[in-house]
Design a protein around this nucleic acid. Structure first.
Length: 845
RNA sequence: GCGGACGUGGCGAAACCGGUAGACGCAGCAGACUUAAAAUCUGCUUCCCUGUCAGGGAGUGCGGGUUCGAGUCCCGCCGUCCGCACCA
């Protein structure tokens, strides 16, 4: 008897069966080829988001397919468990960050298990546990010993709400990425990782990442920001003071009309001590400094400090020196020379302070035309530049650099946008930095034997700032070197450090060291990494750096952690709202409270219509979220997984809709029906129709396999729909039975519970997770007839079936004899006949 | 401002290397089954014109170009989205 697919029973049954059989445990010692499939591990916020479901479903399809194809698959899961939300929860609710985090992990683990992912749970890790962060401390000490970690006093981005330092990457439009508070500048002693040491290799390495999206590589390239140029020294006239500037346009040096220092430049700060007006100007620059898009609108401002510098190529001439708000201390040397004619900012500045504008580059065929309000940045020949006159830009650059080098006042150099990674955080819920500060010995690393430096449990969050600093005893320790009383470092590591090596720990997690090199390298690099584009720069760049740092100190042979990267789109949903009148924000309604009708929607509560808004990213404020638990209970894991893969290409956004998930559910039932009907009746012998079905079947195997290979899940889904339709239309037969059995194997990575349940129903041996991936028979991939399109002047007029491989003459004769062709040509002969064998015939009339 | 991606039916989308545009799904319409509904199944569904059958024309954001032939290649616009943002 044909019944409905019982998703509740099937999910329980098969999840337990996989668990018992340890189906997804990755064996380090397996002789099979290895495949490492990884999705970005989640932050344990409390609930799985539907975006996670999409991400992990994609990874799961790849993992299950690879496994069926004979690979030993590593597909692990863990928790990026340190971070601010836990501390915020602690502050708001008076609970411990650890308790909150571990509860969330338990809840989310249960949710993930209900989705039936093929994960090796024996390798689960949480970054907040000492067995993980203790090993991270060991790695930190190794990098410190290798000179890749240093401490320096520096101006940092201080978030006044979170009371912490932020990395540059965590400052968005001048505001803290979490709190949204306007960031202040403070000077603090901070720990840094020397990522800039790797700038060149991180840039060059991008070209080896063939299976990364171009977009991500480009974003990283821009972030690293390599600029070739020249660094040279300005001597202040009538003084011993000197300062360096960096320029990418040494060729335009004869167009210089001023020099400018950053407000934070040491010279600026030193002068400000005796110049209240300058001090006030500097303060003003810092205040307005980073605020949002009005940087664009913000006027160039300068303060003339009354000094002048000697022009290095023309010692007789002098340039005035300003402190200017548009010069950044963090880039280059924190000082520039201004060439107004060929740099827009310099031009704006020069116009405001009535500085000379001298053109020194003129495009071909144009001489010394005056510069108006637009700087000329294009190519051309040098003018007004003495010994450079007549040269092109590149030659002039080389000549000036050569001259500076031989005369000793400058040299060719490279500037980077990338800055060293500040990892100190004044927070509790992070990896303690394993350092002791001793009055006598200075900065002393904690000996590895004393690791982990564990976080104390008894902390309070009622005082702003770092709880570790407030703890009565934790920071008081004896110096590991001299034994005298000393202080622990109370800063913790940026959470991005945690995620910079977790993929290595998944591959190998011995108790006594971070990882075993040989075992880890059996799995690494990750073959396919999947996650959101929001990590295109930070996480991915840091993980690449960390891997290269470990390589440099001899702990790893690989240089790139992720061979393949895929960034998936978001899950979106339309919004439902009602206008609240002029000037009032509309009221949004949750999808659960809304009834979707044909074109519009009504509120269940009052039956009156609501406005259906655009399909946008799910957010709490727009109430357009869906709860994975509710959906899972209603439709089952397989339908949810199927929907996550259907319709939209995986890199694009997927619009969640009730109609869509209903459709996925119908498909699950359809496959189930097909299998249960087939289980009841075997068929007679093969027929012609059988050959047709066999062809569809083998083409489906071929297409689905290559679609999954290329992560084009939506296309694989479409092929499976076609296969199901073809099977439904075919009469019972051995081929049909075989087709159903293969269909189940193709569907298994996407809807695994359904596949197992149907597999068992058909009396197949073992579990479908252990069944091999089907292989297409090449003989059945080719058809013996083809459809030839007939075009006249490139426009389709007719088509006909013919045997494959028909020769040109036969095709032409056949085409010219056809009624429609004769009529269309009105008796004339075509001027030209173009024949593409097995495809088309185009007649040019 | 700089850099990048994208633009195809009512909707999500397919279309290998330039060769029958719209596979597949959703929504919609019609029909079958049913006392009825649900479920399921079958058919239709880019637009316009003429229309019983059948036929004709247009069509992949807009305007040009290359080609026997362009969604696909080239040039110029328009629009949407994303990243960076005073980087010298």
């Amino acid at each position: 008897m044909v019944t409905k697919f019982d998703h509740v029973g099937a999910e329980q049954r098969w999840q337990q069966a996989w668990d018992t059989a340890q189906s997804f445990a990755a064996d380090d010692n397996s002789p099979r080829p290895k495949a490492y499939v990884l999705e970005m591990f989640p932050y344990p916020s409390g609930r799985i988001h539907i975006g996670h479901v999409r991400n992990y479903t994609m990874g799961d399809v790849i993992a299950r397919t690879r496994r069926a194809q004979g690979f030993e698959v590593l597909h692990p899961m863990g928790w990026d468990a340190f971070g601010m939300p836990a501390e915020n929860a602690a502050m708001e609710r008076g609970i411990h960050p650890g308790g909150w985090t571990r509860q969330n992990i338990a809840a989310m683990r249960a949710q993930l298990k209900r989705l039936g992912f093929a994960l090796d749970w024996s390798r689960e890790l949480a970054t907040c546990e000492p067995d993980y962060y203790g090993q991270e401390q060991a790695l930190f000490l190794d990098l410190l010993a290798a000179g890749l970690v240093y401490r320096k006093e520096s101006a940092v981005n201080w978030d006044p709400v979170d009371m912490t330092v932020l990395a540059n990457e965590q400052v968005i439009d001048g505001r803290g990425w979490r709190s949204g508070a306007v960031v202040e500048r403070r000077r603090l002693s901070q720990w840094f990782l020397k990522i800039t040491d790797f700038a060149d290799e991180l840039l060059d390495g991008l070209s080896t990442l063939d299976n990364w999206p171009e977009k991500v590589k480009l974003m990283q390239e821009n972030w690293i920001g390599k600029s070739q140029g020249m660094r040279f020294t300005f001597a202040v006239a009538d003084s011993d003071t000197r300062f360096d500037v960096f320029t990418t346009r040494p060729d335009t040096l004869f167009g210089a009309s001023f020099a400018a220092l950053a407000p934070d430049h040491p010279i600026s700060r030193a002068l400000a001590e005796n110049d209240p007006a300058l001090a006030a100007f500097i303060t003003q620059c810092r205040a307005g400094g980073t605020a949002t898009a009005d940087i664009e609108a913000q006027e160039k401002q300068g303060y003339d400090i009354g000094l002048s510098v000697v022009h290095p190529l023309d010692p007789g001439s002098r340039l005035p020196v300003f402190v200017a708000n548009f010069v950044l201390m963090e880039y280059g040397t924190g000082a520039i020379f201004g060439c107004p004619a060929h740099d827009q900012r310099d031009l704006d500045f020069a116009r405001k302070y009535q500085l000379p504008v001298t053109r020194v580059v003129a495009p071909e065929g144009e001489a010394d035309t005056p510069i108006s309000n637009e700087a000329y940045v294009g190519p051309g020949k040098l003018i007004n530049s003495r010994f450079l006159d007549g040269m092109d830009v590149e030659a002039a650059k080389a000549l000036v650099i050569g001259r500076a080098e031989s005369e000793g006042w400058g040299q060719g150099t490279t500037a980077w946008r990338l800055r060293d990674w500040g990892v100190s955080r004044q927070r509790y819920w992070g990896t303690p930095i394993p350092i002791v500060h001793c009055d006598d010995c200075g900065v002393v690393p904690v000996p590895k034997a004393q690791l982990p430096v564990a976080l104390p449990d008894d902390v309070t969050f009622d005082i702003p700032g770092n709880p570790l600093d407030h703890h009565p005893t934790w920071k008081h320790v004896d110096c590991p070197r001299c034994g005298k009383p000393a202080r622990r470092e109370t800063d913790t590591l940026d959470t991005f450090v945690n995620s910079s090596w977790y993929f290595i720990r998944f591959a190998s997690a011995p108790a006594d060291r971070p990882f075993d090199k040989a075992i880890a390298e059996q799995w690494l690099p990750v073959g396919q990494y999947i996650g959101g584009v929001e990590h295109a720069i930070l996480h991915l760049l840091y993980a690449r750096f960390w891997t290269r740092a470990l390589n440099r100190i001899g702990q790893l042979d690989i240089t790139e952690p992720f061979a393949g990267l895929f960034t998936q789109g978001m899950v979106t949903h339309e919004t439902y709202s009602r206008d609240q009148g002029e000037g009032v924000a509309p009221l949004y309604y949750s999808p659960e409270d809304v009834e979707r009708t044909g074109h519009g929607a009504t509120l269940k509560a009052d039956g009156a219509p609501v406005d259906v808004g655009r399909v946008i990213k799910m957010s709490k404020s727009k109430k357009n979220t869906v709860d994975p638990d509710t959906i899972l209970a209603t439709y089952g894991a397989d339908a949810v997984r199927w929907f996550m893969l259907s319709d939209s290409p995986p890199e694009r956004d997927l619009a969640w809709s009730v109609a869509g998930i209903d459709g996925a559910w119908r498909f699950v039932q359809r496959v189930w029906r097909l299998a249960s009907e087939a289980a009841e009746s075997a068929g007679p012998a093969a027929t012609d129709i059988d050959l047709k079905l066999a062809r569809v079947l083998h083409r489906s195997i071929e297409a689905v396999t290559s679609d999954i290979d290329r992560l084009q899940f939506n296309k694989a889904v479409a092929r499976l729909y076609e296969l199901v339709s073809a099977i439904e239309r075919s009469p019972a037969s051995p081929t049909r039975a075989e087709a159903i059995e293969i269909l189940l194997r193709l569907v298994a990575p996407m809807a695994p519970h359904l596949a197992e349940e149907a597999w068992a129903l058909l009396g197949q041996p073992g579990m479908i997770v252990d069944a091999p991936w089907p292989v297409a028979d090449p003989a059945l991939l080719v058809d013996d007839t083809v459809t030839i399109a007939i075009q006249i002047n490139g426009k389709l007029k007719d088509s006909f079936e013919t045997a494959k491989g028909a020769d040109r003459g036969a095709l032409e004769a056949e085409v010219l004899a056809r009624d429609k062709v004769v009529r269309a040509l009105e008796g004339r002969a075509p001027r030209k006949v173009i024949i593409v064998p097995d495809r088309l015939v185009n007649l040019v009339a």
